[in-house]
Design a protein around this nucleic acid. Sequence first.
DNA 1: GTAACACCCTGATAGC
DNA 2: TGCTATCAGGGTGTTA
Length: 284
Amino acid sequence: MPELPEVETVRQGLAKWVTGRTIRTVEVHHPRAIRRHLPGDAHFIALLTGRTIVDVARRGKYLWFPLDSGDALIGHLGMSGQLLMQPADAEDEKHLRIRFTFTDDGPELRFVDQRTFGGLSLSEGGAELPDEIAHIARDPMDPLFDDEAFVARLRGKHTEIKRALLDQTLISGVGNIYADEALWRAQLHGARPTDQLTRPAVRRLLAHVRDVLGEAIVAGGTSFDELYVNVNGESGYFDRALNAYGREGEPCHRCGTPIRREQFMNRSSFSCPRCQPRPRTIRH
DNA sequence: GTAACACCCTGATAGC
DNA sequence: TGCTATCAGGGTGTTA
């Protein structure tokens, strides 16, 4: 389940492996993997073949590869996507969707994705920042992230705090896992109304979001199973440091109360009933 | 304009 | 054993 730390780990790995290399061939093995590329696979392949990758960039959970043509290859891992470097003679993965080979005959780049929520697309003229992902906010690790603008925008919204943390146009890179972890650290329930939080409370929460993401980046990202591995095929191990996510019934690391699980937006939220009491006012 | 929800997908797991 | 139901969840499109 790649969130910002996992995607950043992949970005760093890919940057070392593909920067400066020229694409020889592109194979699309599954149409859904390029469903966001509306002109279709022939166009996708034509604009990539012979192009040199000049960098690997990221915004939130999106990656993009600026090309020497001024275009950019955009990638999103979705829930189960992987971008793997593999020797040409390595056996095809069961869920191999797209294969890139390079003119130097070095390792191939493979996009592998079991659940096909992820995908690649090509952005013409998008080397600097693709239009397709311009609506995604900067992430809190970005030096240009504007803390006070975030605080003001969040407090101006009429929604719940966890919804706001998952809104990628407000703050990017945070998914279900790190939202729960940051809320646990801030001792806030995810249903707290954003318009009733004080500025200092939002600043504290933002600091916790940064801490959680930063620690996870150092640890190489969270991984619960083999669905996520980094570019070298190695799983991260941040899951050992989780305080809330996935710990239903286990004692809170702060007060010992069993962690509760609640349904939220068709998924699960984990929190401590004592440290993170539900707000008294119920919104509708 | 804003908020909330359905939907896409496959494999693991639970229940019968 | 083998079937069906449920769950995981990011981002987009649709609805309210």
